[in-house]
């Protein structure tokens, strides 16, 4: 029997990896991947709690979440393509038009 804390720690680690990538990576695609990683860490939590509570609602919710992640990824990549067309780059460093 694996204690719940281990699953949660795993999810936290995955989430932190995603977080680290989100904060440091320059390529838009990498950042999107990191976001996916974080989403999946959250899904993992959902499934773990659902499983340990004996209630399947959480797992259904994780399924929905995955579907929404797919939407998010699709839109995200589409936006990156638009940006690429405008700026010939997808490096987030150069996208700072919201600056002061």
């Amino acid at each position: 029997m694996i204690p719940i804390a281990f699953y949660l720690a795993l999810a936290a680690i995955i989430f932190t990896i995603g977080l680290y990538g989100l904060m440091t990576q320059r390529s838009g695609i990498r950042v999107l991947m990191c976001v996916e990683l974080m989403l999946n860490a959250a899904n993992l939590n959902l499934v773990v709690f659902s499983s340990y509570n004996g209630d399947l609602t959480g797992q259904v919710f994780a399924l929905f979440s995955i579907a929404l992640a797919a939407c998010e990824a699709a839109i995200g990549f589409a936006i990156l393509m638009s940006i690429y067309r405008m700026k010939d780059t997808i490096s987030l460093e150069t996208i700072n038009i919201l600056r002061w």
């Binding site: 797919a70 939407c71 839109i75 589409a78 393509m81 638009s82 067309r85």
Partner: peptide
């Protein structure tokens, strides 16, 4: 939502 997201993504990506 998924369908519309896909359509939106295709529209944006197509240019």
């Amino acid at each position: 939502v998924l369908l519309s997201a896909l359509m939106g993504a295709i529209y944006m990506a197509k240019g």
